[in-house]
Amino acid sequence: MLIGRIQVPPRVQRGEIFEVRVLVQHPMETGFRRDLDGQSIPTHIVDKMTCRYGGREVFRAELGTGISANPYIVFYTVAQASGEMVVEWSDDRGEKGRVTAMVTVA
């Protein structure tokens, strides 16, 4: 299980556009580096991320080696109803991670 964090505003108005911040802990190895013995370090990156809000997909991303270690992504969505924001991601070795946050619509 990969580690990550999500941040949403504590309270939003219906119809309000709010910010969602996601931070994932991951080395994001490019596959272009070598270790001290000159052996190449294999690629190891988070390549897929999806975000569902109230069961509906609101954001999706495909990441490459050009994303920094510990990927940080900020995106926006419109507050519809109180519900759970679920962000899931997986790396190229099939490891998965998941974080959730409760969105409270006033």
């Binding site: 490019t30 050009g66 920094s68 990927p71 940080y72 900020v74 926006y76 969505t77």
Partner: peptide, 14 residues
């Protein structure tokens, strides 16, 4: 998509 409300993305790149 339309549900994003605002077409803005922030991240960190190499």
């Amino acid at each position: 998509g339309a549900q994003a409300g605002r077409a803005e993305i922030t991240t960190r790149v190499r």
